[in-house]
Amino acid sequence: MSPDLIYGLAGLAVFGIGFFRALTLAAPLRRVLALKLCAVGASFLLIVAAYRQPPVTADAVPHALVITGIVVMVSAMAVALALIHRIAVLERERSDG
């Protein structure tokens, strides 16, 4: 068993857990966490695809794609969290007034 196979299967399992929970959890913050787990699972598969048995160096293109993905994901996360905060503020106003 080589590391790429082990971590590829782990990445798939993480993706599956995120996919299942994103569709079944009620709290918005948990759904965002579940979607982030999906993204990490997908990143695992890209990194595994880039892996070569050392001493051969890994393929840098998937690595660059995942770095781009991480930055896009933190951007999406920040917007989602701002929306969750806004919804919470509006709900609080509605229940107060």
Binding site: Y7, L33, K36, Y51, T57, I67, I70, V71, M73, L81
Partner: peptide, 25 residues
């Protein structure tokens, strides 16, 4: 998996900054 650049980005952004954003929210 021989991806140190991505590991650095994940530790700094995926875990660090994202974690700070989550805790702030």
């Amino acid at each position: 998996l021989a991806a140190p650049d991505v590991a650095l980005a994940e530790a700094a952004i995926g875990a660090g900054v994202t974690g700070a954003l989550l805790l702030a929210t």
